[in-house]
Each structure stands twice: as structure tokens, then as C-alpha cells.
Write a protein that binds this DNA or RNA. Sequence first.
DNA 1: GTCATTGCAAAGGATTTGCAGTTCC
DNA 2: GGAACTGCAAATCCTTTGCAATGAC
Lengths: 150, 150
Amino acid sequence: MKVHPQEIEARFRRHAVRVTRQRAAIYAALTETTSHPTAEDLYRTVKRQQPLMSRNTVYYTLGVLRQAGLVREVNVGHHVARFDGNVTAHHHLICLGCSRIMDVMDDGLNQLALSHRQARGFQVLGHRVEFHGYCAECQHAQENVMKRRE
Amino acid sequence: MKVHPQEIEARFRRHAVRVTRQRAAIYAALTETTSHPTAEDLYRTVKRQQPLMSRNTVYYTLGVLRQAGLVREVNVGHHVARFDGNVTAHHHLICLGCSRIMDVMDDGLNQLALSHRQARGFQVLGHRVEFHGYCAECQHAQENVMKRRE
DNA sequence: GTCATTGCAAAGGATTTGCAGTTCC
DNA sequence: GGAACTGCAAATCCTTTGCAATGAC
């Protein structure tokens, strides 16, 4: 969905993100597509308008925008493959602090299904629900940090 | 969950996976833990029992076991980060053939919640549902391959 | 015996880091 | 003016590939 330059600037300011030409271009490219691009895809797209753009800026900017909550990673915890010997239907709690992954068994979640219209010709073989948040330990660690600051 | 050596061998044979000491050890390590280890974690764990074990074998074996359906990757499509400029609640259809990611908007899926007991102290900030399967194009491509074989 | 699997080393690809110069607030 | 950002290069980390030796069936 196309977002106007002024709106981009407004969003950046609202989220305390410095406004630069490069960032606006990266964010614009990302919001204009539904293809869930990689950093490399964005680099190539934006480089057309701004030939000086470097990969580093793309990675750095994506980090900034993600922290600001303006952008999301589709595949949370993508950087290393994590394996599971349990191949029965189940779901996961993923800690954003320590990357711990805990299992959730829930029959209700196993039953989720898409309507025909939503599936759009997609042949669905399975699904998984990821809950994102903070595990008990990471919450306590955070509380302790807060206390120490008092 | 601890799986007996004979049972491991039986599962391998059932899935036409050659039985070797290394594979059994890797699979045993993976089924004995709920920590969703990385390839490196498994390498280190198994190396204790089998000092000659190499990383390559771990990666290769995980590939074999995954294809056989004995093992699963938690983070499908982990190898590259994919970004999303849409930060409103929504979900994804992920094609196992071409890695395409399509958006699913569904209010029902947005409402999912865990029971207190299931959350086990976890502070849930959000959740996402991933549907895995094959997009229309990949299905057609597959059909064409089949036809050509006739 | 044959072919898949293993182990070692090297290559590959994605992402991060170091640092000097530049830009925004 | 000062902190944050950018661009280039080099480094790092995870994973894959090439190849000869080994082992399962």
C-alpha cells in the first residue's frame, strides 16, 4: 500500500526515528509491496533510486525500524535453524528475550482452518501458531534491571 | 521423550532411512530434549558420545530426517530474514515450493489466546499463524511434471 | 559390490562489525 | 555541536559443497 512521503515522515517522527532519504526510501519500498522482501531485495529495489545506498544501511535501517515497531520480521528467529523431534501437531511459545522455544499442546489450535476464499488456491498441508512474548525468567531479569535503576 | 534404540531403528526403517550410529545418536538427542536445539547444539551434544562426529554429518542427517518426516524445523524458511511493512495483526500462507508468503486477514485468528495454565508464566505479546503448503502455481508446476512423466 | 553416508576442508551466502565521513536535530 | 546515520571494507557466523574413505544393505 502506497504511503505518502509526508505520512512516512510523520510516522518516523511519531516513533522517534530520524528522517533520512535512505530510510524513507527503504520504508516506502517495504510498505508498497506485499511480497515480504528480504534485505537484499530491498537493497536492490532502493538502489535504483539511490545508487549510493549500501547494504549496511539497509540492514541498519531495518533494525531501527523493527525496534521502532514500524516493520516486522516474518520469520522470527530466522538466523539459526531450530529443530524439533516432535512431529505431532503442536505449537510454540517463543521468547523474544532469550529465544527459548516452549511447546504448546492445544487441540483447539490444531483445528484452525482457512475458508476457501482465504486460501486462494493454496493447498494447505498444515499450520502452526507462534506466540511471541517473554518467558518468566526474562520478565524477572527485566524487573531486576528496573529495580537496580531506582 | 526418551526413545529406545530399537524403536529408533524401527522408525528409520519404516521411513526408508539408513540406520547408522551417527544418525541414531542425532535423532536420540533430538527426541530426548524439548529445547528445540540448533544443528550446532546437536553437534556438541552428540560429539560427546561420538568424538569423530562432524558438523557435516549433523547437517546432512537433519536434512535426511526432515525429508523423511521424522524431524521438523521450527522456523520454516529461516535462512533469510523476510520483512513486512504491515504491522497490523495478520497471518501468513507460506509456500513450501517457492517460499512465497501471502497475507491472511482473519479476525478469528486474531482472537486466539492461551489458557493461563498453558502460558506457564509467559507474557504473550502477540501471536501469528502460519499455514504451510503449496501455492496454486507450485501445484500446477507439480502437475505438469507428473504429466510429462506419463 | 554398490551406493549412500561420513568426515575433513574449503567455499558460499547472509548478516554484523569497525571506522571515517556525513547528516540530521 | 554532538549524536546518530551512512558507506565501504573486512570479519563473522551458519550452512552447503567437493571429494576421498567408509559402512550399510
